[in-house]
Design a protein around this nucleic acid. Structure first.
Lengths: 231, 231
DNA sequence: AGGACGTTTCGGCCGTCGCCGAAGCGTTCC
DNA sequence: GGAACGCTTCGGCGACGGCCGAAACGTCCT
């Protein structure tokens, strides 16, 4: 046992169906209790507990106690990024697509990816900001323009760096369903958080999928010029 | 059962020590024969063959026959990115560092990451280009300036898009040893390739590590203002 | 043709790990 | 205090999958 965490060890942790389900469930950035995760994982609470212990041990997830509950969340944006990258690879392949039900359709339409927007909505937002010259996505990268700063400020978005945590302002993240980059980084997180605050989007029960509210619809049209991105 | 299935499958493939060794060996972007990979993987040729079949089946690697040899390579930059992201997560952790030998030190100094430069050299190049305003890395993203275009042209670097393959011009990639972004994308690949052409860097035997040649030393100083980045 | 070499296929062994039932520990509520 | 609840630990079962030896297939060389 020379090295602490090796590539194979980390990948093996993600490479179990139950644990992959757990991590997928945590990909929306929220913290969930052990029981909720047991539900998502598809195995018994005892087994889930074992999985959670292993994931914690390897620092893929972090835990905070709260009364008799234990809340688990992804340990860092890096973990989310690795999982997203794997999902991206996973959805390649010449495999036949499984028939996609309404749930899948909702996911493709709009969802959270760790702490930012993804799916068609995420893409539309990135496109709109680019279109209006608020951000410049030089290929898969991004910077916020001065007009962009103002616009975001008008929207009530604060891009101040959080304590210590050096986190990129504007990253892009390859969308596994759309195969195009959407906005991540502090900007992506702030946009997503603000849309929740404004009541533009709501979580769909038991899912990473999002629903755009009527308020959201008009807001997206007014501020972003996004009319309709649903299927 | 949403996307968890395939996520777990892919991760499980990477999550075996022998296969992880194979993929790591291929991370330098070259194509290797089955026997060479057997050597890297640490298991017998028969077993390696089985692993290679599984990796091919899942489209993580691709194969081309050449005489009685079969050359395997990573199937796509996306695969490389996913592995790099996993490595990044893997090297986190509060675990004690293993004592790093001279080989490890060489890797940290300069190496290839799929098809571009990484390690201290990769970081130094990214820093130098930023310093001289040839590229703008707005946080973790990047664009090439007009002066940059000229500079790269002078160096003999052609950034024309390859056939069909939409690939980002200037991506960044988190360096697992330095914890800072280095240049990836077409730009990173072109820079790396050109340095090989010019004889600035050479591969160290049986390793992803690179050695900077005397020519390279003066070239790096003249064109990039990089004096010494070795330990 | 024969032999060396690179690679794959087959068969069987064995360890690892995921799984659940039962039980234990800590917290909350009545 | 006692009961319900949330979560974890323990023990034992079962199976999936990685491993190698032996052998087959294809290619190249002389």
């Amino acid at each position: 046992m020379v090295s602490g965490n090796t590539l194979a060890e980390i990948a093996a942790l993600i490479g179990d169906v139950a644990r992959a389900n757990i991590l997928s469930a945590l990909m929306d950035g929220r913290a969930l209790t052990a029981s909720e995760l047991a539900w998502h994982s598809g195995v018994s609470p005892q087994t889930t507990s074992g999985h959670l212990a292993k994931l914690s041990e390897a620092n893929l997830i972090a835990m905070t106690r709260q009364g008799r509950h234990r809340y688990y969340r992804l340990a860092s944006p890096e973990v989310a990024q690795a999982i997203e990258a794997l999902m991206s690879v996973a959805s390649f392949g010449p495999k036949r697509h499984r028939p996609l039900g309404p749930k899948d359709e909702a996911l493709r339409n709009a969802r959270t990816c760790y702490d930012h927007l993804a799916g068609r909505l995420g893409i539309a937002v990135a496109d709109a900001l680019t279109e209006k010259n608020y951000i410049v996505l030089s290929e898969s990268a991004g910077a916020v323009t001065n007009e962009g700063q103002r616009f975001l400020c008008d929207l009530g978005i604060d891009l101040q760096e959080r304590r210590g945590h050096h986190r990129a302002l504007c990253r892009t993240c390859l969308d596994w369903s759309e195969r195009r980059p959407h906005l991540a980084g502090r900007l992506g997180a702030a946009l997503c958080a603000r849309m929740f605050e404004l009541g533009w989007v709501e979580r769909i029960k038991d899912s990473r999928a999002l629903a755009v509210t009527p308020t959201g619809k008009s807001g997206l049209e007014e501020f972003f010029g996004i009319t309709e991105q649903s299927s």
